[in-house]
Design a protein around this nucleic acid. Sequence first.
DNA 1: GCGAGCAGCGTACCT
DNA 2: ACAGGTACGCTGCTCGCG
Length: 787
Amino acid sequence: MKRRAVLIDVDYVVRRGKGTVRLILKGKRFFKMYDPDFKPYFYIDSEEKIDKGKYGNIEIVDIQTVKKFVGRKEKELQKITCSDPREVPILSEILGRFGRVYETGIKFGRRYIMDNNLRPMNEVEIEYEGKNVKSVSDVGESKTPLNTLAFDIEVYNPQGVPREDKDEVIIISYSDGKEDGAITWKDCGNAPNAQVVENERAAIERFCEVLEEKDTEVLVGYNSSMFDIPYMKARADALGIRFPIGRSGKPPVLRKFGMTAHVKLEGRIHFDAYYSVRILAAAQALKLQRHTLEEVYREMIGGEPWKVDSLAIFQMWDDHTRRKALVEYAMKDSHATAEIFERLMPLQIELSRLTRLPLSQISGATTGQLVEALLMNEAVKEGIIIPPKPGETLAGERHGDQIQGAYVKLPNPGIYENIAVFDFRSLYPSILTSHNVDPETLNCGHEECKNGKNVSPLGHYFCMKKPGLVPSTMRSLLDRRKTVKAQLKNATGYDASILNARVAAMKIVLNTAYGMLNYARARWYSRESAEAITAWGRYYVQDVVKKAEEAGYTALYADTDSIFLLMGERREKDAIEFMDSINKTLPDTMELELEDIYTRGVFVSKKHEKEAKGAKKKYALINRKGKIKIRGFELVRRDWSKVAKDTQLSVLKAILEEGSKEKAIQIVKDVVRKINDGEIDKKDLVIYTQLRKSEYVNISPELAAVEKARKRGMNIGTGAIIGYIVTRNGKSISERAELEEFAKDYDPSYYIDHQILPAVMRIIGELGYTEDDIKFEGRQSSLGGWM
DNA sequence: GCGAGCAGCGTACCT
DNA sequence: ACAGGTACGCTGCTCGCG
């Protein structure tokens, strides 16, 4: 029998005592298929012929001699096949004495996908008998949407932090993005779409039924790996009931890896949107003060926040007149999660197709894992042995052995007019491909290459005859990205969103490729390759600076792949001419672009310097259309109060837009007065910061505030982004710092001397003003409190 | 005993 | 747990001064 379906996931399960590959497919009664004929294997490079037969309890079922590339050398290896993936680590350890073993740590599901050339989220054609797969092949892109349900739970929490053994799940809400629903177990004043069941136990059971009824293929949560699902599981255990949240009534499988947790559901994709958001934030594709559901919703979708104060949940539940509102809030959470997922979905699907990693692994994958997955696929296709992951010791050594990075030109502080900004498009990927930089093309040994032109500024040379795996993979991405961008011009609606996501997915991978060569834990680590890339990068940027100065420009600033030139009396066409002259000299995939021309720009001096040196990575520009671009200033940082950031922005705007120093001064004076008079909103005084470590040497203000909150019973863990206010109560700043929820007043002198003035003085200093020109007003009048 | 100056820690940013 | 380069606040210490 043959059939087509969307491939959701590939994993392995133990079936009749043997580990067998299982395909998870879209479709209710057809989601589980097994391929008992697919056997696990690995390679060994040994002079000795390995004997077929038994090693301990393990039987080698097949041995083949195969030709594979180990690095750049083609070798004859023995392919050792056994019958259960759990045997691979043991057998490879035993055979290790006969020679070097390869590809012993590849997950069985990944192996299956790579060897059969499958792509998750694509359609596959399956030939089968009963539940067993006879053959499977990729058919291509599917436009069938998966059945998706977002959910969220509310928990009774009279102690603030809910206790798994006592505090009930009171509401389970869900949403498919169109229709919302909720399950609860107390009268909630006929809240629309809410069903009231008998008790908590019935609510949990009912939720699992809803998943079955809706045939949910993707279950979406927000921090559900760490909270909702483990909590429901714990409650089910406490109540002594089953928690059949997977298809065919299976419970969830919870796994913890240090700080992060993963939830696996039978036959469904569990997608934690919180993880995706964190990854996007890490890739700088999303920038937020905090990663709460409300903040993310506001940024991605728009609209007003609706959050219930977490301490109000149990009060609303206990008060039957407010229970309806609580249920409605709960549904809004689920609805928001569904909408966020809808936005994330196209990119996630494209990343899944590009890397062949199942969607369930994509939400939690780092960008590094994405690149590595792609390279592994390419290696298998090319008959190249996948390099092993380094051990702890090797990774540690690599980590300590740092390379020189990018060039950053020291700017002269000042206010400038008519600035042209150029940048190299995808600098590192284009160097990597143009110069064929790869661990295996490095110092290839050919005399022609050694004495050829492809030598880095540090003296490494790279093969000019044969493309390496990394550059050829990246070159095809660069080419495909161009093609897709062209297709995008004529696309609309669904097609356009998929193509946009495809471009974005390729961009993420391209931007991370260089990082992988320099990442201590990467399979394709190559210190020399990474070092050559940054050396070439420094060379090309400095070469543009040099040529610009020869052409009569003043080079104001440069950072990694960008160059800022003072145009003087020159016009755009001159800048384009200069750019063209550079581009004529660049190798194939490299290209300099004119990013924009700015009418005015501000560079400031560094703080802690004796003589006035310019600060790097801090500037503000305004283009001909009046669009402002600000980098590095306090106003782009989350660890500064909003009042300081807003003031800094106003000052920069006054200078960039109007060139008015009087206005700038007035803005600052006004804010100083308001702070002294206690006219500032509490929320504008909050300073956000993340607790990145679990143990600290010094007690910083934020840590002191957290310690005080912990004493009051608040549960704040590593990784949390907390907000604090500096109050009047205490001596040191640490003593005065309180989490925003506990702050009763604020210290005006802190906000003036440590927030407003540092943020604006170096900008205003460029205009010839000093602090005394600002601090004219008396401080004694200050009220600085809300209570 | 005190303020200035500095090192080290720590966070967030730029590309 | 993708990299290196950078700014800068806070804490806690040393040092010189009186």
